[in-house]
Design a protein around this nucleic acid. Structure first.
Lengths: 336, 336
DNA sequence: CACGTGTTCGCAAACGTGTGTGTAAAAATA
DNA sequence: TATTTTTACACACACGTTTGCGAACACGTG
């Protein structure tokens, strides 16, 4: 079986006895080309199964149809959904997306970024890794004129556009709900201190306590991370305290599920002994028993919004840093 | 803020007063270039923040580092996981992946395929849409020398490599398990007739019945699809029969969950009134009540295996069509 | 008929890299 | 010293596309 070379614009030109520039223009409906010629060229292009070579086109135009996306892990429901939203919006605007995962690893994130830059992506959409402390790789991309927008997990040290949910109000609402249900010793399984998302949810938690005159206790806050293991570790820590908390506000649902595991193992009942509120409304949270009360975080919409924002930055060529905040919603179920 | 143009090989050459071809060779450690020159060039390239332009390189070499991936929907757990596996393996081999979703829509799948071909992807990984009947768009890619491997959902009409699970034995095992638990009227919520995956699971179901001398009843099979809605529709159909089935083998977990909904609504108990077995071991299936007995399908491994197979085809340049079959495992829980 | 004007197309250069060939100078050999 | 070989680089072209410029031609106008 021979490896047929793909038809080029020149092949079409040769076959028709015209210059290849004429073919180029014809395919793009240039007014200088006679309608009949256009029709003829388009027909033979079709029949020769011509597909434009984006490399040559992009090389010439110095612009691509590529958008880079970096997430910690594709398999996580939230990111999978967000990528789905990104792809949807990208498709509408004629882009295709290159997806990389950092596996929550800083080094890998840097490598991904460089690879994407080499592939001359038009813009970059990032939800940063849990282990990332330094944002030089992103800053460099921006400094060279690249358009970047963070979604969900943004890096504070980098001045870039971002799409996030109202983490502050989400944290506030979750905590307030626990308070209104009569909880007094509310613990917080927090994320990592470097991520804005963690800090804002934490701040919402603190401000809710303050508003209702509940003393803030530093030892009721466990800074861990976003994985189930972090929730397990944090819950075990909290149960070692001489006075148990009466409720938990977890930074996200996986962490909350980690807490569930520990509580179940220790024979503690949810919500009678300890109430739990999560964050992100993972589909599992509706199915676990008791169903988890949580803060809904529109993942698909967030991906879509991030891509839309990126597109605006791309077409306007302006360099304003925008911050788009999506609303959250308290989903009341049975864990409180 | 000025949009700095990225440094090219020529910029480096000009700055150093050498020819750009020398720079090109130096960066690739060509033996014709003096070690000192190489060192000098590499240093200034580093300092000028040079990133090779993949477009120019690919255009010249007529090969890319791009792998196309088309799935029905990124957000589905199975596909998200598979994409994660693909990305992992692709990363190891120096590829980046372009991900598109067909939204179970044939037209969209064709558009995606064309777009990927235009972007001169090196190879294509596909799980085909539910509505796809014709595979001409894939066949054309293959005929032009492109390497394609289907994973999970393969199209029979296209002669291509594929990575699938042992759907036949999976279907067989699921049905056999129901039989051994004393079930006699076993219904099957099947997928679509065009997909091999559906047919094999169906065949496994039939052969298990035959082996244990249980009569096959055509009206106990509902050909629907892979979504929750299909499960709902199918279950409603089955409950309209004058004699209810005593158990259900669903083509996948979402369909099984659809069946759960209908049964719950009708006040029927699982597994006492009707037992249910799913397929794919969606994470939710462990959390729903009763926990769903299902066939485990290694999604991440499947994505990884598909990418590995594609890579072998790419490096060997051979054109053999390989079929890789992954093992399934029966996960026994509480729905039977 | 000379001229301007508009239509339709060809020519050539360019984008950033890679590579085959040519060619000085340096080194090795006779 | 004269010759050959090797070293280290320059030159030019190619990949497939886009685009400015200009040529050939047809037409209408004075």
């Amino acid at each position: 079986m021979l490896k047929n070379k793909k038809a080029t614009i020149k092949d079409i030109a040769k076959k028709l006895g015209v210059h290849h520039s004429t073919v180029s223009r014809a395919l793009r409906d240039h007014p200088d080309i006679h309608p009949n010629t256009i029709k003829l060229i388009k027909r033979t292009a079709e029949q020769m199964n011509y597909q434009p070579n984006m490399f040559a086109r992009n090389l010439k135009n110095n612009q691509t149809n590529l958008i880079g996306v970096i997430v910690p892990e594709i398999k996580h429901h939230f990111f999978a959904n967000a990528i789905g939203g990104v792809e949807e919006a990208a498709h509408e605007h004629g882009y295709v997306i290159i997806v990389c995962q950092s596996n929550e690893d800083y080094e890998r994130e840097v490598i991904n970024t460089k690879a994407l830059i080499s592939n001359r992506i038009e813009g970059l959409l990032v939800s940063v890794s849990q282990t990332t402390r330094d944002g030089a790789h992103f800053q460099q991309f921006i400094d060279e004129g690249g358009k970047l927008v963070f979604f969900d997990r943004a890096l504070e040290s980098v001045n870039a556009s971002k799409v996030i949910v109202d983490d502050y109000r989400g944290g506030f609402k979750a905590t307030e709900y626990l308070i209104k249900k009569g909880k007094k010793r509310i613990a917080h399984l927090a994320g990592t201190k470097e991520l804005e998302i963690s800090k804002l949810r934490y701040q919402g938690y603190r401000d809710a306590l303050k508003k209702y005159n509940i003393p803030f206790r530093k030892n009721l806050v466990f800074w861990g991370g976003f994985q189930e293991e972090d929730g397990i570790e944090g819950m075990e820590y909290l149960l070692k305290l001489k006075t148990h908390p009466d409720s938990i506000f977890a930074v996200n649902d996986p962490a909350a599920i980690g807490a569930y595991e520990v509580l179940e193992r220790r024979g503690l009942r949810i919500p009678e002994d300890i109430a739990v509120v999560g964050f992100s409304n993972n589909p599992i949270s509706a199915f676990i028993k008791p169903a988890l009360t949580t803060i809904e975080q529109p993942s698909y919409e967030m991906g879509k919004a991030a891509m839309e924002l990126l597109n605006e930055m791309l077409v306007s060529k302006r360099n304003k840093k925008t911050k788009k905040i999506l609303k959250t919603k308290l989903i009341i179920r049975d864990s409180v």
